[in-house]
Design a binder for these strands. Structure first.
Length: 593
RNA sequence: UGGGGAAUAGUGUAAUGGUAGCACAAAUGACUCUGGAUCAUUUAGUCAAGGUUCGAAUCCUUGUUCCCCAGCCA
């Protein structure tokens, strides 16, 4: 899976100043280094990636996975994969399966530590009872609307619930009955008794449990009360011995609660377990970092779900989606994702990353690893008039100039060829080096050819070219040393295999899809041209039978990847990313004047 | 207008009291059997104003801007 390489890419300090240790490290790793030096966790590092299985993972999650797994790998620690499945209303097995596949594909290794928060429900229940006994939690009968009303506002303190001072025995009994299913959804909650005037709204008697008569994807109907995130999450980390609980910035306001709940359980507990409440439980440190934003796409699960549900894309793994499965289908490699994660770093402020950074990481990896092959996307038939009818030659082509070990292959050449339509212009502008009437170019690995005649249809479209080849230039070199300005890719028409090629562009037309007129939604910025299907393409015969997700570079065009829609009869490719295209830039500036 | 965070070239990110550096992007040139790749050069930055200091992106003060929080979601 190339994990060693991935690790190498992701590891160590960004500046290569490894001898300095903490210099140049992101702030999370600096904390880890300090903890290692101080022995805070006994030299132990344990991280986790805790997705809720209510959607597919996206590249923002990849950033988190690379951070968490990267830290564990670099410091000799452990990395857990844990499903935070505390809300049966939104969670599904399909999402669990896709998440496992995606994390594994990225190369993060959780060994045998695949956990589910729902497996901790019994322990959490017992701790909740303990909090009631300690007078720190109570059963509340307020309705949802009332809870909101009593909570107060950002600037005004809340009011205490009239149920706040129930006796411990009454609370114990009611909570047990909640758990036994005696009350309908929403009738009662268990709340922490903290401070209704707290300036942090999260501390105004937060709800620990709600009643939900819902079948859980894993626990079935065993429970009808479900823990809230704030109550559950710290304990999940605690039970797994997590040292650094890394999450995104919006949970910063929740950290006081994370700490409060663990402290509340630990109150009265001792290090050696003596005393009525037993032994103290582990108290991890929560650290928050900024989530990733990418230009020209959206990253929230809600919006991605909308794109899928309303058919704006073909599914979670549509190659235009920023999901891990979408990027994989598009042709991204784990190595590219890792180097991207390293490049963007980790910080505490929101930033929007330019897609050119992502594409740079992609090209950097694909250039090293992708076998080259010739393909023609928009074919233009070319007849070599002086090439013997019926003759076929097998010419040597290099598989990967960046990797001599990749070897060579044979490419058939014949009298009838396909060239790329855009490689010919009848009236070439300045700086157009490719084929034009009377002009000589090289066909890669083959011959020099000169264009002698242009055939057009009734509408004046160029439909066929006639050329002469120079037999002395076989292989692509002229014995007399004459030069040509261009080298073109080509295919022997009788040998070429038909293929469908899907070209992709940004899903949205604006860097910030949220930038919409008053009253409109982000979908108003969807790019109508994000997908272009070319049905009549051709590829080299050497790419006859290939597995889905196999990557190639189509010479001079870009990186392409076999789509799972591909069959033996019909090859289908996705364009992962184009090659850098100097001519396109020149053309653009020429058009702009 | 309560509380919690954060501001470094167009973008991302280093510098942790001592020459503001790197990558991407952009521009120019070299080389090239991919107008690819590679190499070289250039443009461009500390939110603002004060203060401390021999010396401030870094420390202090004041201000500005941005993000998060009023789900029985996570």
């Amino acid at each position: 899976m190339g994990i060693d390489k991935d690790r190498e890419i992701s590891g160590k300090s960004p500046n290569g100043s490894e001898e300095r240790g903490e210099r140049g490290l992101d702030f999370v790793r600096q904390i880890v280094v300090e903890d290692m030096q101080s022995g805070r966790w006994g030299g132990r590092v344990a991280t986790r990636f805790p997705p809720e299985p209510n959607g597919y993972l996206h590249i923002g999650h990849a950033k988190s996975i690379c951070l968490n797994y990267g830290i564990a790998a670099e410091f000799g620690g452990q990395f857990n994969l844990r499903f935070d499945d505390t809300n049966p209303e939104k969670e599904e097995q399909e999402y669990v399966d896709s998440i496992i596949e995606d994390v594994r594909w990225l190369g993060a290794d959780w060994d045998d530590r695949l956990f589910y928060a729902s497996d901790y429900f019994q322990q959490m229940y017992e701790w909740a009872v303990e909090l009631i006994r300690k007078g720190k939690a109570y059963v509340c009968d307020l309705t949802g609307d009332q809870v909101r009303e009593y909570r107060g506002t950002l600037t005004q303190p809340g009011r205490e619930s009239p149920y706040r001072n129930r006796t411990i025995d009454e609370n114990l009994e009611l909570f047990a009955r909640m758990c036994q299913g005696e009350f309908p959804d929403g009738a009662k909650t268990l709340r922490a008794k903290i401070d209704m005037a707290h300036p942090n709204l999260n501390m105004r008697d937060p709800i620990m449990y709600r009643i939900l008569h819902e079948t859980h994807h894993r626990q079935g109907d065993q429970w009808c009360i479900y823990p809230m995130y704030d109550w559950a999450h710290g304990f999940e980390d605690s039970l797994e011995g997590i040292t650094h609980s890394i999450c995104t910035l919006e949970f910063e306001n929740h950290r006081p609660l994370y700490d409060w709940f663990i402290d509340a359980v630990n109150e009265g507990r001792t290090d050696d377990g003596s005393g009525p409440w037993g032994k103290k439980i582990h108290h991890p440190q929560q650290i928050e970092f900024a989530r990733l934003s990418l230009a020209y796409t959206v990253m929230s699960k809600r919006k991605l779900l909308k794109l899928v549900k309303e058919g704006f894309v073909r599914g979670w793994d549509d190659p235009r989606m920023p999901t891990i499965s979408g990027l994989r289908r598009r042709g991204y490699s784990p190595a590219a994702m890792w180097s991207f994660a390293k490049l963007i770093g980790v910080n505490k402020f929101n930033s929007t990353v330019d897609i050119t950074l992502l594409e740079h990481c992609l090209r950097e990896d694909l250039n090293q690893t992708s076998p080259r092959v010739m393909a023609v996307l928009r074919p233009l038939k070319v007849i070599i008039d002086n090439y013997p009818q019926g003759q076929v030659e097998e010419l040597d082509a290099v598989n990967n100039p960046e990797d001599p070990a990749a070897g060579t292959r044979k490419v058939p050449f014949s009298r009838e060829l396909y060239l790329e339509q855009e490689d010919f212009m009848e009236n070439p502008p300045k700086k157009f080096f490719r084929l034009a009437p009377g002009r000589e170019v090289r066909l890669r690995y083959a011959y020099f050819i000169t264009c002698t005649d242009v055939i057009k249809d009734a509408q004046g479209n160029v439909v066929e070219l006639h050329c002469l080849y120079d037999p002395a230039t076989r292989g692509g070199d002229a014995p007399d040393g004459r030069k040509v300005k261009a080298t073109l890719h080509w295919l022997s028409a009788p040998h070429a295999r038909p293929a469908e090629v899907r070209l992709y562009d940004n899903l949205f037309t604006k860097p910030d899809p949220e930038d919409v007129p008053e009253g409109q939604e982000f979908t108003a910025n969807l790019n109508p041209n994000s997908l272009e299907v070319l049905a009549d393409c051709y590829v080299e015969p050497s790419v006859a039978e290939v597995a889905p997700l196999t990557r190639y570079q189509f010479e001079r065009l870009g990186y392409f990847c076999v789509d799972p829609d591909s069959t033996a009869d019909k090859l289908v490719f996705n364009r992962t990313v184009t090659l850098k295209d100097t001519w396109a830039k020149i053309q653009q500036s020429q058009q702009q004047g």
